[in-house]
């Protein structure tokens, strides 16, 4: 199981939960599981999110494995200048 921390405004879309747990081994599996378990998150996931795994931010990294016990934080899709 992966514990995923949500940013503030996403929590409303996930029954007020700050952290949700899904069964997933990779980033893609996690995002799919999140959208399924909490349909309110689906629009944001479809628009794009970044994922922080143990402090390393990934943008497109669907197949990146999520190690057991990793700190996983959902973040908005990062862009820069």
């Amino acid at each position: 199981m992966v514990r995923v921390r949500l940013w503030g405004s996403l929590r409303r879309a996930a029954d007020g939960l700050e952290e949700v747990e899904v069964r997933a081994g990779s980033v893609k599996e996690m995002l799919d599981a999140l959208a399924e378990a909490h349909p309110g998150l689906a629009p944001q996931i479809a628009r794009g999110v970044s994922v922080s795994i143990d402090g390393v931010i990934y943008r497109e990294a669907w197949f990146t494995p999520i190690p057991p016990g990793a700190e996983v934080v959902l973040m908005p899709y990062m862009t820069g200048g």
């Binding site: 794009g48 143990d54 390393v56 931010i57 943008r59 497109e60 990294a61 197949f63 190690p67």
Partner: peptide, 17 residues
């Protein structure tokens, strides 16, 4: 390496934006 504070580049395809 998870100790690396930076993310790594992936060589995957383009994201449709």
């Amino acid at each position: 390496d998870p100790g690396n504070p930076q993310s790594r580049p992936s060589l995957r395809g383009a994201r449709r934006r």
